[in-house]
């Protein structure tokens, strides 16, 4: 998981098209990930939660307004290089 982060391995030339730079942001932090197109996003989500110290159950990853589940991949979501995943907190409501 951690090896998919931006920092460690930057340039593997033949695989360049295969990799995407994806920005994951909640309103405070921005974290860039470089992942393969076929990588399940669960890895990314877990990495982000670990890094930010959040519990995965209480966090929602949204891509274009729809929730990203763990088994989604950039391919399945038609993600492009530089796309953004938004991180939202869990919303709870019962009364005013």
């Amino acid at each position: 998981m951690a090896d998919q982060e931006q920092s460690p391995n930057g340039g593997e030339a033949p695989q360049a098209t295969e990799h995407l730079n994806i920005k994951v942001t909640d309103n405070n932090n921005e974290v860039f990930f470089k992942i393969k197109r076929s990588t399940k996003l669960e890895k990314l989500m877990n990495a982000f939660c670990e890094r930010q110290g959040k519990e995965a159950k209480t966090v929602r990853f949204l891509f274009d307004g729809t929730r990203v589940t763990g088994q989604d991949t950039p391919d399945s979501l038609d993600m492009n290089d530089g796309d953004t995943l938004e991180v939202h907190q869990e919303q709870i409501g019962g009364s005013r």
């Binding site: 939202h88 919303q91 709870i92 019962g94």
Partner: peptide, 8 residues
């Protein structure tokens, strides 16, 4: 025991 629904 919380019966408030969440966004999921």
């Amino acid at each position: 025991r919380d019966n408030w629904l969440n966004d999921a």
